[in-house]
């Protein structure tokens, strides 16, 4: 399974990972269109935490023992054989229990349609996730475990 690792010492806090993640998760996949017409930032599944000069990006850890999967009452949140935690929008009823139990706070609600707006899927359709590919300082790297 691939894992996205944040190198805190080189994260400069530009938050471009959020921009590119949102674009990747948008319908149009066009950066300007995503932010000008769609719900923009809401779609990002990566978040930059900052305190003073210390910044790093965090996204779903794909926990081995994922509390969001346990707490999901419809089975919308599930774990693949390879250990990737994914979310099925069809099944989601918007109870937001996963948000309550997520120890890292990396699941975001969509207030309009009462569902889960974004959650890192490790860009399984791409070889390199959008955030890693576009980090200008290579502070996000991918490791294969």
């Amino acid at each position: 399974m691939k894992k996205i690792v944040a190198k805190e010492e080189y994260c400069m806090g530009c938050r471009l990972c959020e921009v590119y993640c949102a674009t990747k998760n948008s319908k149009s996949k066009d950066i300007i269109k995503t932010f000008k017409s769609e719900a923009g930032k809401l779609l990002s599944a990566i978040f930059v935490e900052e305190k003073e000069h210390i910044t790093f990006a965090i996204q779903c850890r794909h926990c081995e023992d994922a509390p969001c999967v346990y707490s999901c009452l419809t089975g919308a949140m599930y774990k693949t054989d390879k250990g990737v935690v994914l979310h099925n929008k069809e099944k989601c009823v918007g109870c937001w229990m996963c948000i309550m139990v997520c120890p890292f706070g990396v699941i975001k609600p969509d207030l309009n349609i009462k569902k889960i707006a974004s959650k890192c899927d490790l860009c399984l359709d791409k070889e390199v996730p959008a955030c890693v590919e576009n980090c200008p300082n290579e502070a996000l790297v991918i490791i294969n475990k």
Binding site: C14, R15, L16, I31, T34
Partner: peptide, 13 residues
């Protein structure tokens, strides 16, 4: 302004 998405990367950096 047509291209600016107000991501504020410039503001932060």
């Amino acid at each position: 302004q047509e291209k600016c998405i107000k991501c504020q990367a410039c503001v932060r950096m």
